[in-house]
Simulated scan of single mutants.
Amino acid sequence: MIQALRTPDTAFDAVPDFDYPVEYAEDLPGYEGLRAAWIDAGPQNADRVFLCLHGEPSWPFLYRRMIPVFLASGARVIAPDLFGFGRSDKPVRQEDFSFDFHRDHLLRLVERLDLRNITMVVQDWGGLLGLTLPVDPGFAARLSRFLVMNTGLGQGESPGPGFEAWKAYALSTPDMPVGRIIARGTPHLTEAEIAAYDAPYPGPEYKAGAQVFPALVPVRPDMAGAKLGKAAAQFWREDWTGESFMAVGAADPVLGTEPMARLRSLIRGCPEPLVIPDGGHFVQEWGEQIARAALASFGDLPAE
């Protein structure tokens, strides 16, 4: 049994601009006893569903500028909280977190909700995990399109010294200042929004996932997820036939224009990206523009 903490619901009372229905399950196969949380907004019978996958150390609050655009198109939006983040339970031991622990959670949730005609929306760890999901044929059959932002595929190589410094900092900082970290590259955040990023973590004991996540990136061939990353690269390069859209926060010091250009070269048919010159790593904070451009590209909204 995994020992976990649960953030009190009252911690989210002051979160601004994020009043969406929250669903919970404590019986996902393989995760019995752990409460998983996710946003489920829009028509249950919608013919399209946007699956928004967050990264580290954020939670789906990061998508609050994009979700209204997706909903206005008539779609359903599912935004899961990974375990250790948001409203989902937070294991207290770092060793309980692994690449497969998070990836399998997403697969089980998609199966539980029987999501189809998925537009997958990913950034950071949302991409490291999400881009490997189509290696599973069951998920690949559910996926129609995807929107990718500032992320990569873990294939056994390090993203570089900037990432290594971030990993060392995270592992050595038990009480990571999550909101301030996100605000560093996102200067337009208000104090209330910064506090909202801190809301899931009433104390340092809730932050094991935020601390250990960078150390789980498959930077060596022998690490969990590296073989999946290589298989995923083959899928996107050779088997992908759906639509894609890429947006890049050019001010990201680790996963900016050059790394994203390398990722784009792996994605069959991926068009030229939308570049946000001032956009940092958490580029969803410029998300309304990105969402509208993506939907226009997909034909869901008229181009402006």
Rank of each mutant, 00 (worst) to 15 (best):
A183M: 02
A165Q: 15
S244W: 08
Q155R: 15
G225W: 04
F235W: 10
R184M: 03
G152M: 06
R180H: 14
A231I: 03
E191V: 01
A165T: 14
R220G: 04
A170M: 05
E191D: 12
T173G: 10
L153D: 07
H188T: 13
A199R: 07
K230N: 13
P200Y: 02
E243F: 13
V248K: 14
G209M: 00
R145I: 02
P214K: 11
K230Y: 05
F146R: 12
I194E: 09
K167Q: 12
L143G: 08
A210L: 01
F245K: 12
V212S: 02
D239T: 11
G225V: 01
G162C: 09
P159G: 14
R180Q: 13
E205T: 09
S144N: 14
G154W: 03
P214Y: 06
G249Q: 05
A192F: 06
A208V: 00
A224F: 10
G179I: 06
R237S: 11
R220S: 11
F235C: 06
A215I: 03
K227F: 00
G152F: 05
P204C: 01
G225D: 04
A233H: 13
A168N: 14
A215V: 02
T173N: 14
F146N: 08
S144W: 12
G229F: 01
V248G: 13
G154R: 10
E205M: 01
A196I: 02
M176H: 14
W166R: 15
T241Y: 10
L171H: 14
R180D: 11
A168V: 03
A141P: 09
G229N: 08
H188R: 15
G185P: 03
D198M: 01
P187N: 08
P221L: 00
V148Y: 08
L147C: 05
A251L: 03
T186Y: 09
R220L: 02
Q211I: 06
G154E: 04
T151Y: 09
A140L: 01
G209K: 07
L143Y: 10
K230L: 02
L228F: 02
G162H: 11
F245R: 14
A199N: 04
Q155L: 00
G156A: 06
L189R: 11
E238K: 15
A196K: 09
M223C: 01
Q211C: 11
A215Y: 08
T241L: 03
A210R: 08
E157H: 15
P221V: 00
E205F: 03
G225S: 06
D239V: 03
Y206Q: 05
A251P: 06
G156M: 09
Q211H: 13
D198K: 12
R180T: 10
R145N: 14
A215G: 13
F235P: 08
G209Y: 04
P221T: 02
A224P: 14
I182F: 07
